[in-house]
Amino acid sequence: MPTKDGENYIIVVEHINKSFANGVKAVVDFTTRVKRGEVLVVIGPSGSGKSTFLRCLNGLEEIDSGTIVIDGIPLNDNKKNRLEIRKEVGMVFQLFNLFPHMTVLENVNLAQRRVRKKSREAATAMSMDLLKKVGITEKADNYPNQLSGGQQQRVAIARALAMMPKVMLFDEATSALDPEMIGEVLDVMKDLAREGMTMICVTHEMGFAQEVSDRVIFMEDGKIVEVGTAQHFFTAPVEERTKLFLSQIL
């Protein structure tokens, strides 16, 4: 496009709605804009639609109405646009979803080779850099099930980064981890945030939110209930629902 907004905002979401076949309205008239380099944290009780919102952003879920524009590219029925957006948006899942039949290195190499059409050498060089960044170079030739949960999630982050995405989505990236492994994954995410990556994180880690996020959205029943900085949520939440939720997770 790029419109005036497109230049300032890398993600423009306007009035999106998403219902599931069973009638549950997961996302209701949701509007938000994300600036380049912004770190947005989405919190909310389970079933509030935060994961669904995240999954709409790279087309894993089809929206029923509304518009999503990422880096000037509208996410619509145009297959080329969708593919372009999937390349620009990296995603990290709660359950890692590494490819179990491939080594760590092959996991990180795959998209570079198939999508970016790099040579094996070029892909491997970049993969090793990324694995170094997430601190697991020594496991490059291991299979995912030989790694701990925290290590697997760090590989998953490296795998997503290998596409050189402009946006990273984190869908409860630390929720499935043992407590002692949460820190190592959050550290990688914090580094990424400080390097200026645009990130949207669905998480309950308020410490993380306070340290690196620019904005926090509290969602319930598919709607935005309250928006503010992490500090705002710690010190002066306005809505009763927000207070109740925070009292449960903090």
Partner: peptide, 22 residues
């Protein structure tokens, strides 16, 4: 597992590579 399809999808793999590699 559905997560495998989603991971392949989110990496931008096309259908052919998703089936062939994953």
């Amino acid at each position: 597992n559905r997560g495998q399809w989603e991971a392949a999808y989110s990496l931008g793999l096309n259908n052919f590579n998703m089936y062939k590699d994953i």
